[in-house]
Computed example of a mutant assay.
Amino acid sequence: MTLLHKTYGKGRVRVMCVHRDGGRHAVRELTVQAMLTGGFDPAFTHADNSTTVSTDTVKNVVNIVARETMTLPAEAFCQAVAQRLLDSYAMVETATVTAHETRWSRLSIDGTPHPHAFTLDGNGKSVAKVRMGRGGALTVESGLSGFTILKTTGSGWANFVKDPYTTLRETHDRLAATSMEASWLWSRPPADYPAANALILDSLLRVFATTYSHSIQDSLYRMAQAALASVPEIETVSLACPNKHYLPIDLSPFGLDNDNQVFVATDEPHGQIECTVGR
């Protein structure tokens, strides 16, 4: 028997750092996964751990690098963790580090930003993922996970295949909502990761909100095109969007009409639409 693939590491390393600048503080919370490949075959095949780094040690490396570099953008932080693992352990061939950011927004009291009080930003999490080998960064990705958006008109679903299995009616005016998973692959680093990521998100949302959607497929392709046009340093954009369905309720048994006003909310089962668009 042959060991065809192996990797291991530490997941859900949750780290919060506070940067203090006098009385004004800033917070950063990341949930990190660091996965390694390399010369670890004996641990799998011969019960020999002599070349295997403990996953607890991997966690410690994440925390130490956080202490040193937590003010960096998530992409640069992931690169720093990957580089430290490669520099520290000769048996490691690649390190893949992923960080989901929990965003905290500064509270305002009577219109004045508070120096050390924050509220949780509930819509989605920023994601950075770096895969690094001994020759340097192999891939750098940024993105968003679980970013939920909705519009109440400007969306339809019509002219689709109809056969004896079809029960869905056509519509040219429906609610469109999704919990978006989005990622983009960098061909080269931008001057400012947070600014570039914000511009990409703005491009995605602008297309979603301001243009008619013939389908989620139609919207996703044009959203990705806009993101690629907005930031030249990205190579591809991948979007995965499950439909969050809001279905009109039939109120006719009660002598009432329902002109797209009252809906039942459900996301089970849901349509799953995914695409990757490149230059």
Rank of each mutant, 00 (worst) to 15 (best):
R103S: 12
E29S: 05
V62C: 14
A265W: 01
S88P: 09
S187I: 05
M180I: 12
V127H: 04
A76N: 15
Y221D: 13
P42H: 06
Q272H: 02
V140M: 08
A198Q: 13
G38H: 04
D87I: 04
V127N: 10
L72N: 14
S179D: 15
F208I: 08
V53I: 15
S219A: 14
T148C: 11
A196C: 09
L107I: 14
T148V: 13
V65Y: 02
G11T: 15
S155F: 00
V62T: 12
L251P: 00
H19Q: 12
L72K: 14
F77R: 15
L199F: 00
T2F: 03
G136W: 00
P194W: 03
A137W: 01
F254N: 08
L239V: 04
T166F: 01
D259H: 07
V207A: 10
M1I: 11
D41W: 03
A66K: 06
S105L: 13
M180E: 07
L150C: 12
G133T: 10
N123K: 11
T139P: 00
C241Q: 08
L144P: 11
A34F: 00
F147L: 15
A82V: 12
Y212P: 10
S213T: 03
T276W: 04
R14H: 07
V13I: 13
V97K: 06
K162V: 15
M91H: 06
T171H: 02
I234V: 15
Q272D: 05
S230H: 09
V130E: 07
I149S: 07
L201I: 14
N243F: 01
S142M: 07
Y221R: 13
H25K: 08
E268H: 06
T171L: 03
V58H: 12
V13K: 03
A195W: 04
Q33P: 02
D259Q: 12
S155H: 05
T7L: 05
A43V: 07
T236K: 15
T119R: 11
G39A: 11
T51H: 05
H116K: 12
F208C: 08
D192P: 04
A74F: 02
L168H: 06
F160E: 09
Y212S: 10
S142Y: 00
L185W: 02
N159Y: 05
R131N: 15
K151W: 03
R131H: 06
E274P: 01
F44R: 05
Y89S: 12
Y165F: 06
L86D: 12
A82W: 05
D87R: 10
H100Y: 06
A82M: 11
C78K: 13
L239D: 05
L30C: 01
T102Q: 14
P253C: 00
A227S: 12
L3C: 09
K59Y: 01
T119L: 08
A99M: 08
A128T: 09
T98D: 09
A224I: 04
D21W: 05
H46I: 02
S230T: 14
P242V: 07
E170S: 08
E75M: 01
L251G: 09
N49P: 02
F160Y: 14
V140P: 03
L150G: 07
V15Q: 10
Q225F: 00
E233G: 10
G154L: 01
N258F: 03
A43P: 02
P269I: 08
P164H: 08
G111F: 02
L175F: 04
S252R: 07
P115V: 09
A95D: 03
P113M: 06
D173T: 00
